[in-house]
């Protein structure tokens, strides 16, 4: 860390960062959901992170679920690039930041993604407790924000107040004018204690560990994948909420005025048609093959080596949205059984 400060109120920090930036924070909708949303200027509501990550992660704020790539006016093709104002994401959990770091690598050469990413200051938030269903500690992650994955890190300290850790030069510059006091030295010990607490709450997660081993050894029989495939409705829920999923499909539209617009939209590798070719040949024709490949993408050795991390950050969102009960825990339990 570059520095550690004592912070009297996260709201004051947020108001400071809002100068010259659009602020996005997770807010409750009154119907049981939480969503990332733009705060109105002068919003002074208390900073209250949700009890678990919101169903939709920060992914669409960078990899838009629908955006134009190019336009054709009959003679020429014009690229469409988004114009992005500076913004701050306030209160991102460690798992979602880890996913973002994964996407940063994957979309390194994607100008649409990187334009948004370059303009965004990331304020992370350390979790002091495990959320229900979370298993970050079982997949090489942590409830504590990795300092290479955020600009600033907010955490509740043991004295009922707040500590602000400075993780990047951009973070340091953003708060310089606040002249915050130094934090007491015990913040590292408190972080260690939080990690131990979350580890204890999440437990051994033996099925996750065993499932990863089975996938990496390619030892799961086709019939087991096919049995899982029977429970896959192809709804696209898991791939939509997974913060590291990144597949997309083209969509051709005719705009009012006649120009043709080529957009990209989120896709899902669990759809039957995902790999189906025009000739109707389909290398992944069965649901079991597709479920298998999804989990290989998350835990396979080749991907883990390429990204230096698993494609699963342990957020548990797939367990929540899967109508067939074959999210991470459902699948890993079934493939790790003898």
């Amino acid at each position: 860390m570059l520095a550690a400060h004592k912070l009297d109120s996260p709201e004051r920090l947020r108001a400071h960062l809002a100068q010259g930036r659009e602020v996005q924070e997770m807010r409750a909708d009154g119907q049981g959901g939480w969503h990332w949303q733009n705060l109105a200027a002068g919003d002074g509501l208390p900073f209250e992170p949700p009890p678990r990550p919101p169903l939709t992660s920060a992914k669409p704020l960078f990899f838009a679920e629908r955006e134009a790539l190019f336009r054709f006016d009959g003679g020429t093709f014009y690229g469409c690039l988004p114009e992005i104002e500076p913004k701050v994401l306030f209160g991102v959990s460690a798992c979602d930041l880890r996913a973002l770091a994964y996407q940063d690598q994957f979309f390194a050469q994607d100008e649409h993604y990187q334009r948004r990413r370059r303009q965004t200051l990331l304020v992370g938030y350390d979790c002091g407790h495990s959320c229900a269903g979370g298993f970050c500690t079982a997949v090489g992650g942590s409830p504590l924000v990795n300092q290479t994955q955020a600009d600033l890190i907010l955490r509740r300290n043991g004295h009922g107040g707040w500590t602000l850790l400075v993780a990047s030069q951009a973070g340091a510059e953003a708060i310089a004018a606040l002249a915050l006091p130094q934090a007491p030295e015990d913040w590292t010990a408190e972080r260690d204690a939080d990690l131990a607490q979350v580890r204890a709450e999440q437990g051994a997660q033996a099925e996750i560990t065993a499932g990863i081993a089975a996938i990496q050894a390619a030892s799961v029989e086709p019939e087991r994948w096919e049995a899982l495939g029977l429970r896959c409705l192809g709804c696209s829920g898991c791939t939509s909420v997974c913060p590291t999923c990144s597949c997309y499909a083209p969509l051709e539209q005719r705009e009012e005025g006649g120009a043709l617009l080529h957009e990209r939209v989120w896709d899902s590798c669990l759809y039957t048609g995902f790999q189906k070719e025009a000739s109707s040949h389909n290398p992944a024709a069965t649901a079991g093959q597709r479920v298998q490949r999804f989990w290989y993408h998350k835990f396979g050795t080749a991907f883990a080596e390429r990204f230096g991390a698993y494609g699963c950050v342990g957020c548990g969102r797939c367990d929540v949205v899967c109508p067939g009960s074959i999210g991470a825990h459902g699948v890993m339990t079934r493939i790790s059984r003898p």
Partner: peptide, 18 residues
Amino acid sequence: IGVEPQAGHPVSQGQLCA
């Protein structure tokens, strides 16, 4: 531009079909 399930909905319990 997109849709997500309503968390805690009494019928769909935070899930949706295709």
